[in-house]
Simulated scan of single mutants.
Amino acid sequence: MSSPLAFDPARMFAVFGMRAVDSAGFDREVVQAPGDDLRCVFLWGKDCYNCNVFKQTAMLHKDALLDLGLTWFECNVYDDVALGQRFSLHGVPAFMMFRHGKRLGRISGWPGLPQFTEAVRRLRSGPAAPPAPASTQ
């Protein structure tokens, strides 16, 4: 029997509105989906100590993380090895950032809230829209 104060790592997915993705639908759901939102894919593993550290930290600082305005996705790469291989992961957690169909970068490990926030701010300050096609006139 668990204590009412016991930490449930899966609860974090609901709090952040994380949508589960897998290797089969990743491009369709993350890369090719319309919108100019900044998308963060949380790649994690079941019973991964460092992944659970992030999950606990995320719940403690949920307001600050939610204020970043990210669209969140998640995948257990222990179950979906192909997705981990796609991004050449050597460890989890990892956070893949996408916007406008482009991979903007990866944050490996959980660097802490200040560093994560600063990385997101740098990505936000980048181009807000994809470049316009060149004129052929």
Rank of each mutant, 00 (worst) to 15 (best):
R39K: 11
G126Y: 01
L123R: 00
R86T: 06
L60P: 01
I107P: 02
P131K: 08
H100L: 06
F42W: 12
A132V: 04
P111W: 07
Y49A: 15
G84M: 09
F87E: 08
D67H: 08
V30K: 07
F16C: 03
P93D: 00
F16S: 04
G101R: 02
L123A: 06
A132L: 06
W72Q: 10
H100F: 03
D22S: 07
D67W: 02
P131E: 07
N52Y: 05
L38E: 08
A132Y: 00
G101Y: 05
A132M: 00
H61I: 04
G84Y: 11
L83Y: 02
P130R: 01
K102G: 06
V53D: 03
G112N: 07
L43S: 03
T117R: 13
L123P: 07
R86C: 10
L38R: 01
L83C: 05
F98W: 13
F87R: 05
C40Q: 00
W44P: 00
F54Y: 09
W44H: 10
D47S: 14
I107N: 05
T117E: 08
L66E: 14
S23Q: 08
Y49S: 14
P111Q: 08
W44I: 05
L104T: 02
S88R: 09
V31G: 08
V92K: 06
P34V: 08
L38P: 05
M97R: 02
P93I: 00
S125I: 03
G91N: 10
M96E: 13
F42C: 06
E29T: 12
F42S: 11
Q32L: 13
Q32A: 15
A132S: 05
G105V: 03
D80R: 02
P130C: 03
F87L: 08
L60I: 02
S88E: 11
L43R: 01
Y49P: 08
V31W: 12
C51V: 03
L104E: 02
M59I: 13
R99Y: 11
L68P: 04
P130V: 01
S108T: 14
R28S: 15
D79M: 13
P130W: 01
L83K: 02
R86S: 08
E74L: 05
K62H: 15
V92N: 03
F26G: 07
L104M: 10
H90W: 09
F98Y: 15
G109Q: 02
H90R: 14
P93L: 04
V53N: 06
D79Y: 05
A24I: 10
Y78S: 14
Q32V: 12
A134T: 11
R106S: 15
G112K: 05
